[in-house]
């Protein structure tokens, strides 16, 4: 029994989800190898090898893997699968994209977004927007698993493990990369930040989101949004926190002008401390908040920035 974790990275930067996913994978109880696939990934392979508990690193460096196209990554993982009992990836948009393809090609089920490892076959995962937690047992001989990284801790560092090169190149004709629009931000990533401040429909427009900037600067926070704010075009899609957006669990989550639909709560209710600022005292967000402030956000935000 042996586990293969597929590392997640973006533009040459290893995502913190990888370390947390390795943490989850180690709970299975077997040796953990990590595959890093991409173009010019050598510098990152060192970082992967230095994550505590990593047994060995497999480096697949080729332009075919540059944009993490699901067709190519799935074929690569499939070629390595015979050596492993468990295949594990982060439930990021990358992992969610290629892993079910791997599972189908192996003719096994996938266990999506686990939040806990009970034993090597049994896992906990949220269903119905996190309103229920299912404990499921995989009956397949090989397990394909994605991990909700926010439910696991970062791993410490270690003396780098050995790396080996994987030469196989899978370059499917089915799909090709066209372009990417990367959202540029100096702030920490939503899924990695210790503090997140999110705005909702109550922000009224995109410009008003700048009211969150000063507070985010002072707290070193990432800025998120509810679906309503994204749908209304206030802010880009990658800021959405919720059931089908990003799942966050920071130390402090500040919800501003967010009513608290089931779908939004699903993305943030595991935060350690939740603050809600909303002028509607009946907003459902107050039911999950540790500290609620019933007030007009346009009065409160400048005051809060000053007070910090």
């Amino acid at each position: 029994m042996k586990t293969l974790v597929i590392a997640d990275h973006d533009n040459g930067i290893l995502k913190p989800e990888t370390s947390k996913t390795i943490n989850a994978a180690l709970k299975l109880g077997f040796a953990v190898d990590v595959l890093i696939a991409g173009e010019n990934v050598a510098p990152m392979s060192e970082a992967v090898a230095s994550i505590a508990g990593v047994n060995g690193v497999l480096v697949a460096d080729n332009s075919a893997y540059a944009h993490q196209l699901a067709e190519n990554i799935a074929d690569l993982v499939l070629s390595l699968a015979p050596d492993y009992s468990h295949l594990v990836a982060s439930a990021t948009t990358t992992g969610k994209n290629f892993m079910p393809r791997v599972a189908a090609l192996l003719d096994v089920a996938q266990i999506s977004e686990i939040i806990d490892v009970v034993d090597a076959d049994t896992f906990k995962r949220p269903i119905y927007a996190g309103n229920a937690i299912a404990t499921v047992k995989s009956l397949d001989s090989k397990k394909v698993i994605t991990v909700r990284a926010s439910s696991f801790d970062l791993q410490d560092e270690q003396t780098p493990a050995e790396s080996r090169v994987v030469d196989s190149v899978f370059s499917s004709e089915l799909s090709a990369f066209v372009s990417v629009e990367q959202t540029e931000s100096e702030r920490p990533e939503l899924t990695a930040a210790q503090v997140v401040i999110s705005g909702g429909r109550g922000m009224q427009n995109g410009e008003n989101f700048s009211l969150l900037n000063g507070i985010a600067d002072k707290l070193g926070a990432a800025i998120g949004a509810s679906r309503a704010a994204v749908d209304a075009g206030f802010v880009p899609n990658d800021m959405q926190v919720g059931q089908t957006g990003k799942i966050v669990a920071p130390n402090l989550y500040i919800a501003v002008g967010i009513s608290g639909a089931i779908q939004h709560l699903a993305g943030m209710k595991d935060s350690k401390v939740i603050v809600a600022i909303n002028k509607d005292p009946d907003a459902p967000i107050f039911q999950v908040a540790d500290y609620g402030l019933v007030a007009d956000l346009f009065d409160v935000l400048p005051e809060l920035e000053q007070a910090l």
């Binding site: 266990i111 269903i127 229920a132 937690i133 299912a134 499921v136 039911q287």
Partner: peptide
């Protein structure tokens, strides 16, 4: 391929203050 062992309520958040 998957056995549903059990389904539980998620951990409840204790009530906060205004």
């Amino acid at each position: 391929r998957i056995q549903l062992v059990t389904v539980n309520e998620p951990a409840k958040r204790s009530g906060g203050i205004i």
